[in-house]
Design a protein around this nucleic acid. Structure first.
Lengths: 213, 213
DNA sequence: TAGATTGTTAATCGATTAACAATC
DNA sequence: TAGATTGTTAATCGATTAACAATC
């Protein structure tokens, strides 16, 4: 009955499986073998079967995997059968862009409110979502059932805001601020560090150029 | 003289080293040992020394690493001593948010132009950067020395636009569209899949809840 | 010189791939 | 039943950690 620890590498791949299965579903593909999927995704069939078997046997010998079933099962594993309430902290360009991105709702992520320190932003509505002053955030978070905070504020403010949010009951943080947050073990932090992503691109471009001689 | 292949894992960590060293530099820290840095970054000192030694011996026994020197060397490794010209394809919320983010320029990434399919966007200026119609993109890319294209357009258009851009000479793609681009080997693609990032957060949140019994 | 800390080799650990018996 | 393909064990590969001699 002991739960096998799922490795980081496997978790990182799950959303990609989910995306490919969603695409297949849209094309009305009913079943797929690990071999076919491996060719589409450019990974080994062995890896696909290993990954899936961390969570149970979703396939059938001689047949493969039922696309709809597997898609739904991976969705459950990813927690997409639940719904989450989010707030965005920082109503700058990125915060607004995320607020405008309606697709998250389709996956069960509901943006309930946006907070900003700038009084000029307060009262603004973005896709119907209200911007409030950050001074109201404590009460809002405590009164409403907020699961995830999206941090799209400058680096300087992020650590303090994050630790406050945790104190007020937030369990997950989607962090776009270019800094690491050192928070208690039980808090889940998922970082999106755009500058670092761009630097990796730059590294790979330079690497190619060097080998051009 | 043969070049050692640098592993994916090491490359992924380089920008983070760079960030920490930049922070230390701002605080006027002159030197740091792998042990001290490992404590700040929550990795092993051994890993730091191994990672750095992929590129050369930047430290000194008994002393540690000179912060300014190491920062600058990692910058060079990452290609941040060069400058890059970028275009953004898709002037939606995310494209505009990235165009507004001036910090990229500090690292040598210059956004030269934004393209969109919607005629209503054409002529708009975002932080002084012009929005042009996507029909003009071919000529623009061919006439100007554009290194990187940032794809912030819907999934449906992305693969075709990407393969056109590659044909017109683009070497790197920063892809925000929620799809994989299958392009020739020599093209560098760096993906930022926001939905997948959010799904990972959701997975980890669900995982915690399950172990709460 | 003595102490500190690197650079680097060796040991360990974990993840990926290969192989194949089980079974639909 | 024969063929296909999974689930799973074993083999391989690569990355991380530990240890320590080199050296500043």
């Amino acid at each position: 009955m002991e739960k096998k620890r799922i490795s980081r590498a496997v978790i990182d791949r799950l959303p990609r499986y989910y995306r490919y299965l969603g695409d297949l579903l849209e094309k009305d593909v009913v079943r797929i073998s690990s071999k076919e999927l491996s060719e589409k995704m450019k990974v080994t069939a062995s890896q696909i079967r290993q990954d899936l078997n961390n969570f149970g046997g979703f396939g059938q010998q001689g047949y493969g995997y039922n696309v709809e079933y597997l898609h739904s099962e991976i969705g459950k594993i990813l927690g997409l059968d639940k719904s989450y309430n989010l707030i965005i902290v920082g109503a700058g360009n990125l915060g607004q862009a995320l607020a405008n991105y309606a697709d998250f709702e389709r996956r069960g992520f509901f943006i309930k409110c946006i907070f900003d320190i700038n009084p000029k932003m307060v009262g603004l509505k973005i896709r119907g979502i209200e911007v409030r002053h950050i001074d109201e955030m404590e009460e809002y978070v405590k009164m409403n059932q907020i699961d995830i905070a999206v941090l799209t504020l400058p680096k300087a403010g992020a650590p303090q805001v994050a630790s406050n949010l945790v104190r007020w009951g937030i369990k997950g943080i989607w962090n776009f601020a270019p800094t690491d947050l050192h928070l208690p073990e039980h808090v889940i932090v998922e970082n999106v560090h755009l500058e670092e992503s761009l630097m990796k691109l730059s590294y790979k471009l330079s690497e190619i150029q060097e080998s051009d001689d």
